[in-house]
Write a protein that binds this DNA or RNA. Structure first.
Lengths: 244, 244
DNA sequence: CGGTCGTTTGATTACGATCAAACGAAGTGG
DNA sequence: CCACTTCGTTTGATCGTAATCAAACGACCG
């Protein structure tokens, strides 16, 4: 046993921010059949078109979901960190409509999709908690549609830095408003629908304006109020506080 | 009684394309407490920031979800038609993170959120069917992120016309590849992240290329193969055929 | 100490935005 | 029935943001 606590501790903590779980529910989650797998940086967990037979819960490391367009451009759809189920939809939808790739060396708990489905159906509280999780996922996608659809380059990048800051904090991966970006500027660009060259210029400008400072890939937000405004950022869509 | 069939017939038909429901489940759905409301064109069903106490199932007409950015731009997030639950997430998430507005005069069945939540928890098959519905919703949002993030104007508009064509067909609102757009070009523009002027030019070009023809707001797709290619369209993300 | 990958900077281009105005259809009131 | 208004569509001219092309720089690694 490599884990003093269960592999699902992070997940349970996350779910309980939103839904109350009974002891029996917690124990049922912890009893989920699973195997621990580790993925080297750059590995794919799921590829567009796969029929995955299992679901991955990230334990350490970072991952993203993305799609490739007909002419080869990549759009990153979301970033994921420890404690998150990456492809929950695969437990119910049969065929993957996008790919999932890890940035860094990553450990994950791999759960058979039927086990997860049965648990959700058998224990309504767990089903609800996971449903809420997918609803929040969808809320983040909606905000990203707005980000790439209607914000200029400066706001897009600022918005993403704000989102990452809050999510990293919630996952205990940030030191206040300082965190290390797990991805390259090219990947940032693919998340906000810009070119890497332009993302670089925007980051430089945000630093010159005194909103952030940078050291390698470590971002420090120097002025939360102003970057929040620059990014037109309102954290409501993250639903970090749904006390139902 | 204005309806020879129940108000939920369209919803049930839609859900059963993906999930098998027992007779008891169907009857439980039809027994949901609800009231029929009609909304005049342009009315809001939900406003960003509301705490809605009920969920709307569209019976006739069209609606969209949207957000407004800090500097007043609008991004439409999705279009909705008869048989769709518009704000399912409100039955579980407390606070609306976007607005819902109808285009045309619209009738809807308004269901108290607690009734819907209790039904989903009490009848796992219904909970699963609705969960799948929200997962498909999320899949469409992902495709829209790609559309506005990484496709040029011609592909964006073509892609949206493809999506609308298939969804209208599935909802029995299209005559083959001919359907009437329920929205203005300005609203199309807000859905694809362009200006109305430019959408107009793209539509004109698509017509000149022989991919579509237009008469008022009626769109006829003349060459499905070519517009599909122009829009980089792959219907898999709609999950119209998940036979679980 | 090369070699690779990611970051940074500069010069030019292009796609879609913006500004402006005419046109057309549907609805209203005299 | 016909002015008149309103809203949406269409077309033209110009502008600006971000893309593209190109190259140097810097960090990390074997």
């Amino acid at each position: 046993m490599q884990f003093s606590t269960s592999a699902f501790a992070g997940l349970i903590r996350r779910l309980e921010r939103r839904t109350r779980l009974a002891d029996a529910d917690r124990r049922a989650l912890e009893a989920l059949p699973h195997s621990i797998r580790s993925f080297p940086a750059g590995a794919h967990i799921v590829r567009d078109g796969d029929r995955p037979e299992s679901c991955c819960l990230l334990l350490t490391g970072f991952a993203c979901r993305y799609k490739i367009t007909g002419d080869g451009a990549r759009q990153i759809l979301s970033f994921h960190m420890a404690g998150e189920f990456i492809d929950l939809q695969n437990s119910l939808l049969g065929i993957a409509d996008h790919s999932v790739q890890v940035f860094t060396e990553t450990e994950a708990a791999v759960v058979p999709r039927h086990a997860l489905r049965d648990l959700s159906l058998g224990r309504p509280a767990i089903g609800e908690a996971l449903w809420i999780d997918t609803l929040i996922d969808a809320s983040i996608f909606r905000e990203w549609v707005v980000n790439v659809g209607r914000r200029d380059s400066r706001a897009r990048v600022a918005h993403l830095l704000c989102e990452l800051s809050l999510r990293m904090q919630a996952a205990d991966l940030a030191d206040g408003h300082r965190y290390e970006l797990p991805m390259t500027q090219e990947q940032l660009a693919d998340a906000v629908g810009l070119t890497p060259v332009h993302v670089n210029r925007v980051l430089k400008q945000l630093a010159e304006e005194g909103l952030i400072s940078r050291d390698r890939r470590t971002i420090t937000i120097l002025d939360w109020g102003r970057i929040r405004e620059a990014g037109d950022f309102n954290e409501r869509y993250l639903h970090h506080d749904v006390a139902a």
